[in-house]
Amino acid sequence: MSHGTLFIVSAPSGAGKTSLVRALLERLDGLQVSVSHTTRKQRPGEVDGVNYHFVDVGDFERMIERGDFFEYARVFDNYYGTSRPAVQALLAAGQDVILEIDWQGARQVREQVPDAESIFVLPPSRASLRERLASRGTDDEAVIDRRMRDAISEMSHFDEYRHVIVNDDFATALADLEGLVRANRSRLERMRDRQGPLLEALLSRNEGVE
């Protein structure tokens, strides 16, 4: 059975990571985004199992004790984590899986899955990033300043990743991201795994030459 690849995608808030991943899912089959677990309250319009797996604190802490998370963190009194069994099941079924996580979570996952493909998405400039954050129209200047400081801190870890994409032109950045996934699928070990019957048929001495 084919075994999928784990892709880690990180970026500062406002760099366009989520939009890129969403567009990539529409262009490629055999690719899924891991749905994180969280203890925060479900918001209007969110769907359990789609946006997050919403669990209570007790359930989350029992999952921690069982070692069920590739990575987890507590943010503003709420837990967030990536389920190890769920991701492993998808990979074993031949699905490529994307984890949208920050640099700290990425570091935890890479320690456990050294062959994971890691990708960092950067904005074209600080000015562009600030403009994107401000365009949401939901935050005042003080909040935007804090988000910019957080973004700069996040971006300082870009060199821990195997690949870096600059999201200046969205179509170009999407093509770059798609190219990374397709290139991974064409690696020799993946081809042997995914296209075993074809390779056997092409090289068989028993087949007639056409």
Rank of each mutant, 00 (worst) to 15 (best):
A92I: 00
A183K: 15
Y79Q: 08
L180Y: 07
Q112F: 05
S125F: 13
F60A: 12
A11I: 03
A142E: 11
F76R: 13
D140K: 05
I152V: 11
R43L: 09
P124W: 09
F120Q: 02
A23M: 13
L28S: 07
D150Y: 03
Q108S: 10
R66N: 06
L99M: 11
S36D: 10
H37V: 02
R66G: 08
D159M: 04
Q88F: 04
T172C: 02
T5L: 11
L31D: 05
E26D: 12
L90P: 00
A23C: 05
G105C: 14
R205W: 02
A142L: 08
V57A: 01
V21D: 12
I8W: 14
L133C: 12
I119P: 01
Q32V: 14
R187C: 05
Y79E: 13
D139Y: 09
R149H: 07
A183P: 03
E160L: 10
T18N: 15
E131V: 00
E141I: 01
R190Y: 01
R192P: 01
L122Q: 05
G105K: 06
I119W: 15
R27F: 10
E61G: 00
R110Y: 00
H3L: 11
P124N: 15
R162A: 13
H163Y: 13
Y80W: 11
D169N: 14
R185P: 08
R62D: 15
E141N: 14
P124C: 02
D68H: 08
D168M: 02
A11R: 08
S204V: 12
P114R: 11
G4Y: 03
L199M: 07
M148L: 15
M148W: 03
D159T: 06
L133K: 09
L129K: 00
I165H: 12
I98R: 10
V181S: 03
A92L: 03
V47F: 09
V55Y: 08
M191I: 15
V143R: 15
R136L: 12
L203H: 09
F170K: 07
M155P: 04
Y80V: 11
A175M: 07
E207Q: 11
E178W: 12
E131G: 05
Q88C: 04
L129V: 00
A86P: 00
D68L: 08
P114D: 06
Q95K: 11
L99H: 12
D115W: 08
A93Y: 01
V209D: 11
G67T: 09
A134K: 13
V57R: 11
W103V: 11
